[in-house]
Nucleic acid binder design. Structure first.
Length: 270
DNA sequence: ATCTCTGTTCACAA
DNA sequence: GTTGTGAACAGAGA
C-alpha cells in the first residue's frame, strides 16, 4: 500500500542487485500486472544483463540494465519488493509475479491485487526513457514550485483539496495517508474546495507538502520507521482515534470522500 | 457473509 | 475540449 516513501523503501530492497547479472527469471505471464508489456518481452530483454541502477519518482520505480534496458514497476495498492537468498530453496508466494535471479539473490515482486504494473523500455544506451523524463516535478525536490500549485488549484476550483492532492499529475507520490496528513497539519478540512485557499494558505500548502514528503522519505524511506506520534499518521487508521494535536484530543472523524477513506479532526479542521 | 483498503483508469455527466 | 464523479479492477483480512 505504498506511497512516496514506501515506494522508495521497496525499491531500495533491490539495491543489492546493482552490478549483478540476471541469470534467470520467473514470471506469471497471465498476471494482470503484465497488461502493458508481455512477460516474455521482459524476460527476453533482461536475462543475461546486469542491473546498473535504480531510482524512484513519486510512486514510479525504474531499474536500469545494460544496453539501455529499463524495467519500470508500479506497486498499485498491494505490491511490494523484497529479496531472498538464492542459495536456499526459494519459495516465493503465489503472488510473486516476477522474480529476477542473480548469482546470490532473488529479487521478488509480489502483488496480490494486481493493480500494479510492470513494463520494459529500450533506449539508446545512457538515455532514460522519454516518459520518465517527462514526469512532473518531484514534490520533495527543488523544481516543485509554489506557482505550479497555485495554478493547479485554480484550474480545479471545486475539487476537494484532499482529492486534488491525490492527483499524480501534480503531486507525484502523495497517497491517501499523506493527503490526510497534509490537510490535518494545515488545519484545513479535506473537503475544502481547492479554489477557496487564500494565497497565504497556498504558500503554506506548498511548504507543508515539501515538509511531509521530505520527512516521510527520511523516516519511512530508510527503514520503515513510524512517523512521530505528533502526526495524524499513527492515529488515523483505527476507529476511535483521537486528534493528537496538543490540547485537542477530539475524536477523529472518518468518512468517504470521492471514493477514498478520509480522516480528519472535526475541531481543528472545521 | 459482508465490509474494508496507503491506487489508477475509464466511461460518462455537466 | 475541460472538469468532475463513481464504478471497476482483485484479493486478503477483519
Amino acid at each position: 500500500m505504498p506511497e512516496l516513501a514506501e515506494v522508495y523503501f521497496y525499491a531500495r530492497q533491490w539495491e543489492v542487485g546493482v552490478g549483478e547479472k540476471i541469470r534467470a527469471m520467473a514470471t506469471h505471464p497471465a498476471a494482470r500486472v503484465y497488461r502493458d508489456c508481455p512477460a516474455a518481452t521482459i524476460t527476453k530483454e533482461l536475462t543475461g544483463r546486469k542491473m546498473t541502477s535504480w531510482q524512484t519518482h513519486g510512486k514510479q520505480m525504474l531499474f536500469g540494465f545494460e544496453q539501455g534496458r529499463w524495467l519500470s514497476l508500479h506497486l498499485g495498492m498491494s505490491g511490494s519488493l523484497r529479496t531472498e537468498p538464492a542459495s536456499k530453496d526459494c519459495d516465493p508466494d503465489k503472488h510473486a509475479h516476477l522474480v529476477l535471479a542473480t548469482e546470490t539473490t532473488h529479487l521478488i515482486f509480489s502483488d496480490p491485487r494486481m493493480f500494479g504494473r510492470v513494463a520494459l523500455d529500450v533506449t539508446a544506451e545512457g538515455d532514460l526513457p522519454r516518459w520518465w523524463l517527462e514526469l512532473p516535478a518531484a514534490i520533495e525536490g527543488e523544481n516543485f514550485t509554489l506557482a505550479q500549485i497555485g495554478d493547479f488549484l485554480q484550474r480545479h476550483p471545486r475539487t476537494p483539496l484532499k482529492t486534488l492532492l491525490l492527483d499524480q499529475r501534480r503531486f507525484p507520490g502523495i497517497g491517501n495517508w499523506m493527503a490526510d496528513e497534509i490537510c490535518w497539519q494545515l488545519r484545513l478540512h479535506p473537503a475544502t474546495p481547492s479554489g477557496e485557499l487564500s494565497p497565504k494558505q497556498v504558500a503554506s500548502l506548498h511548504q507543508m507538502i515539501r515538509l511531509i514528503a521530505r520527512e516521510a522519505m527520511r523516516i519511512i524511506g530508510t527503514d520503515w520507521s513510524d512517523p512521530p506520534k505528533s502526526w495524524l499518521f499513527l492515529h488515523r487508521w483505527r476507529d476511535g482515534g483521537d486528534c493528537p494535536r496538543r490540547g485537542c484530543g477530539t475524536p477523529l472523524q472518518r468518512a468517504d470522500l470521492r471514493g477514498r477513506t478520509t480522516c480528519w479532526c472535526p475541531r481543528c479542521q472545521a
